[in-house]
Design a protein around this nucleic acid. Structure first.
Lengths: 195, 195, 195, 195
DNA sequence: TGATAACCGAGACGGTACGTCACGTCTTTAA
DNA sequence: TTAAAGACGTGACGTACCGTCTCGGTTATCA
């Protein structure tokens, strides 16, 4: 008599909730870091109910992943700059830029702290240094004769990224331009074909 | 009432407490990782009172630092193997070995998760790749004419370490011998003097 | 986000929790007294969580006050028995009855142990012998010509109560009927108009 | 070969410890009351070791009993003032004086809070209003023909004391001279022989 | 005069309780 | 149907005292 339930009825999801929560997450991350980020405080700060947060983002990791979504957008694919060294720099620069900002540091820390695979670390990987951009960079270099045979493209790129992580989280120093040049120098010489 | 306080008086600390607690920490770290390590559970597992734990190790970080003490012992100073490449491999190998063991992974994760300087990260740094061994390695290489002028020794060593961290925590793959050879290849070529 | 917060929403407080906790408080009071009453043990005994106790009753005093609520109900106002002596007896009898029971003793002790004003002592005062019943009793006595001018009604009533307290807590003897008669005798003669 | 142990040898107990501790107890009582008095804090304040406190005074009650020893000295026996009313006032006045001082209030509260018989309450009773002074006072009044037959001396005195306790602990008002006069009026008329 | 025995400070230790915070689930009412 | 509100059980936090204990060092007394 009452018919099938309509799928589109009910109170619509407020877009304001999403933005308020994600803004709160970013603010909390900047203040207290990934450790010490609590759903409860995020909800309070966003003036949103705790249950509304849980409905959308089941875990803390999902929450920061969503909040950091934008930060990973820029790592689409490295452009062709005409030289291997240029390509490496073009790939490393946005990562270093991210690591220079406090929220970027928080994101990195979060990605590394999470034990379970497929959460933050995985997502970051897929975006940042994943197969695609690494292999396309290597492909271009090979075409130019710059790539030393036998070098694994991923290993090269990951070495670059790992150095930035070490710099940011362990040395707790900002990856300056000069420092980055030195790093790219090392890696570039490390993977280029023998002259 | 009888004079200046003596530092050595009082009931001596029971060695059994220490060993029981640290063993419990290691076990918990292996099971649940650094996140999810609670003082309360450690104390229960060690069959020791919570207050006895807090008396010695004021923070969670101090606890894992103490538990991991032994793991960092081996990084004294890298031996002189006669060549830069050999020296690099000799320095990287024990770190890679550590990163290959589950408790080593937990230690790394803990060091990176801690925000505050001077805790785990700092301690690990001082042991692992700090100024001393890095500069002595570089000194030997310079004497042999192998070190390319202008390369910062710390940067080179930290790049090596950063790559291992990336491999272990983000890629979640073990640093095999072959992989390590490839890494040392890259870094060695990156910092050696032009032939 | 949708308007002012509603006060009536949310899961209602379970009545079972309340009754279980208050019963546990009464039992603990009977066994160990006010000192030695711990929230933790009450919660354990009631098989209720500690936080659920704290949510409702922020302090230990509030807890026993709530548990003793019923004990103070009966002191509404003393009836008109037709004579000052009868009124005094009617007022003192329920207090003496309370003091004759173990939980009543515990209540008294708790009221006296609390330092802060406005807690138990205050509540007990307001119920038991406070202005209202004291002055109405005096008013009736004055109308009959039984009240000696210049006597403060509160002082008279409080003297009665104070004697019962001394009997119960310091002498640790029960306020028997005979004893109470003697007390009322003293106070009655003390405040009646000269014949 | 060594013979039986001597009972009298050894280092005597230092008097400085005793006085320092008792002073600390009095200070703590004045500040935080009987509840919230801890052996640990007393020891810290007296700059004496916790063990030294426990050696002498096994319980908290013993501690305050010792600290309050002096306060109860003055209640030896009430002097003969020549009249029943004068004797009552002479007996009540020092008690009221005690109750007017903060440490006296703390002592009263402590005496009432303790559940176990024979601790503070008992000691206070034995000193303050015990049989001896009550009956000697009554004896003198009987000799003068002032004592109404059938009145229990203890009950009369205890009523006096109970009123002061009520005034001090429940009403939390100081027993002023005027108030005390009113109280003695009531009790005197309550127990005197009919004129 | 020297052994003996008690005193004393210092602090570790196992306990218990404190009061707070966050977790994630559940039940209710309102939009 | 979704949202807001909040109760609830659970578990951990870090701290404070409890009372006991094990030491090393001191100090008086008595043989």
């Amino acid at each position: 008599m009452t018919g099938p339930p309509r799928r589109d009825a009910g109170r619509p999801r407020g877009a304001t909730v999403v933005s308020a929560v994600l803004a709160a997450v970013r603010a909390e991350l900047a203040e207290t870091g990934f450790e010490g980020l609590s759903v409860e405080r995020v909800a309070r700060r966003a003036e949103v109910n705790k249950t509304s947060v849980y409905r959308r983002w089941p875990t803390r990791e999902a929450l920061v992943a969503a909040a950091m979504e934008g930060l990973l957008e820029e790592f689409g694919d490295s452009p062709d700059t005409g030289s291997l060294r240029g390509d490496l720099l073009a790939l490393a620069a946005p990562i270093a830029d991210l690591a220079a900002r406090p929220d970027g540091v928080a994101l990195l820390r979060a990605a590394l702290a999470t034990t379970a695979r497929g959460d933050l670390g995985g997502a970051a990987l897929q975006r940042a240094g994943d197969g695609h951009s690494a292999s396309s960079l290597a492909e271009r270099a090979r075409a130019r004769g710059e790539w030393r045979p036998g070098v694994d493209p991923q290993q090269a790129i990951f070495t670059l990224v790992g150095a930035i992580i070490h710099r940011t989280l362990l040395e707790q120093a900002g990856p300056t331009g000069e420092w980055l040049e030195g790093l790219v120098d090392i890696v570039h010489r490390g993977i280029r074909a023998d002259p």
